[in-house]
């Protein structure tokens, strides 16, 4: 039986959205330079949310920890999948599209919907992957304002081998990790 397949995002990480309490000033998740508290996150460790296993990114000075979406083209392990699952958060609510590129040359645009990271609830039916107790501001740690990372699914409806995906040209969307869930046919065949 084929396992869930993490997508390697290291080459695409381009944003510092996680900081320690001792160094909140370098956070750049949103236009206010808020960031998520690293002390409350599984940095650099496997992490399960919504029944999906993710490789949570590490974080540190000079080390981006998430992909701020600017149309990056991401190569994935070839295979047939049902879902592309994301650990993601929005700078406000985000609705956009991911382009899925298949081995036979076909391309599908599928919706990606991610709720706000800042003191919000899941409005698109996501699983809450992370809810912190504080929010990092450039000059201080703020209690009473939660930061969220959501586990959201993007459907892969085409029964064909997926090769690449293009993230939206939408800087409001941040992706921390992604994992592909094999199609039911592939699982059964395995």
């Amino acid at each position: 039986m084929r396992e869930q397949v993490p997508i390697e995002l290291a080459a695409h990480l381009n944003n510092a959205g996680i900081t320690p309490a001792s160094d909140t000033g370098r956070g750049r998740f949103n236009v206010w330079r808020n960031s998520l508290p690293g002390e409350e996150l599984p940095l650099g460790r496997p992490f399960t949310a919504g029944g999906v296993r993710f490789a949570f990114p590490a974080a540190g000075p000079g080390r981006p920890d998430n992909v701020r979406c600017e149309g990056q083209l991401v190569t994935v392990p070839p295979g047939r999948y049902d879902w592309c699952c994301l650990l993601a958060a929005g700078e406000r609510r985000v609705e956009d599209e991911v382009a899925l590129h298949f081995a036979d040359g076909s391309v599908d645009f599928e919706p990606v919907r991610v709720s706000d990271f800042w003191a919000a609830s899941a409005v698109f039916g996501e699983e809450e992957a992370v809810a912190t107790s504080v929010m990092h501001y450039p000059q201080h740690v703020q209690p009473g304002v939660t930061a969220h990372i959501w586990c959201q699914r993007v459907p892969v409806t085409r029964r064909a081998e997926l090769r690449r995906l293009r993230l939206p040209h939408n800087v409001a969307l941040h992706v921390f990790a992604a994992t592909l869930c094999p199609s039911r046919e592939e699982v059964n065949a395995g």
Partner: peptide, 10 residues
């Protein structure tokens, strides 16, 4: 409303 997100944040 959600399209406004992309305009505002961009």
């Amino acid at each position: 409303a959600h399209r406004w997100t992309a305009v505002r944040v961009t």
